[in-house]
Design a protein around this nucleic acid. Sequence first.
DNA 1: AAGACGGTCAACCGCTCCTTC
DNA 2: CGAAGGAGCGGTTGACCGTCT
Length: 225
Amino acid sequence: MGRLQSVRKGSWTEEEDLLLRKCIEKYGEGKWRHVPARAGLNRCRKSCRLRWLNYLRPNIKRGDFAVDEVDLIIRLHKLLGNRWSLIAGRIPGRTANDIKNFWNSHLSKKLNWENSSTLTAMRLPNSDASCPSPSGSMGLAMGSGVDETLQQEEEGFTGPAPTELNPLEEEEDSFWKSLLFEVEEEASKSFRDGSSDTAHGKDDLFVGLEGLFSDGNLWDMIGSD
DNA sequence: AAGACGGTCAACCGCTCCTTC
DNA sequence: CGAAGGAGCGGTTGACCGTCT
């Protein structure tokens, strides 16, 4: 009937945020198709969903990424590639959009630059105390600690050392194991379904893991902020 | 002081995957 | 089993802001 009402685009107002928040509180997440009408918003369902997921959802962290978060992002990206939602699922309080933006604006250039320069110049002599080492609860599970990984790399280290783990390390260990399990499940499923998504197949997964564990000094690569 | 430039981030777009019928 | 619609994802865009010249 030619009633193609144009939906609003652009930045969200506080009033719109309030309406959306109230709607989600009342009806819960999901059923995004109904959200605009329920909330009384002249927005498309995608816009509502995005706004909620990236901005309004409780427990969302704003501001700078912590050292351990950055380290985790780098490693997860090495393992998973540009699968931001998967990466975000492993970093509490951070959204896929946040991580994607952060990667694109901070890390990708830095890593590209450093990677290309280290090919010829090898490691830059700046791995001193000014480079923070990952130390939070989400830090490295395997051979955590910058000097350790560096040493392992120089000694031809290619996998996690079978050392005894303290409780914190055990927690981290289980984190990586569960992640590995999830990704492997997905890869297996794709494999069984004959999916053409070979970019994330099992082989690549283990290539990624190998790189993940045998990785050199990430903080050397990206420098310290 | 002001224009140019680059970086950041919120939001949109289009595609793929998933679910339902 | 296939089609259609919905949901989710990653890539891209554009506005805004800070820095540089």
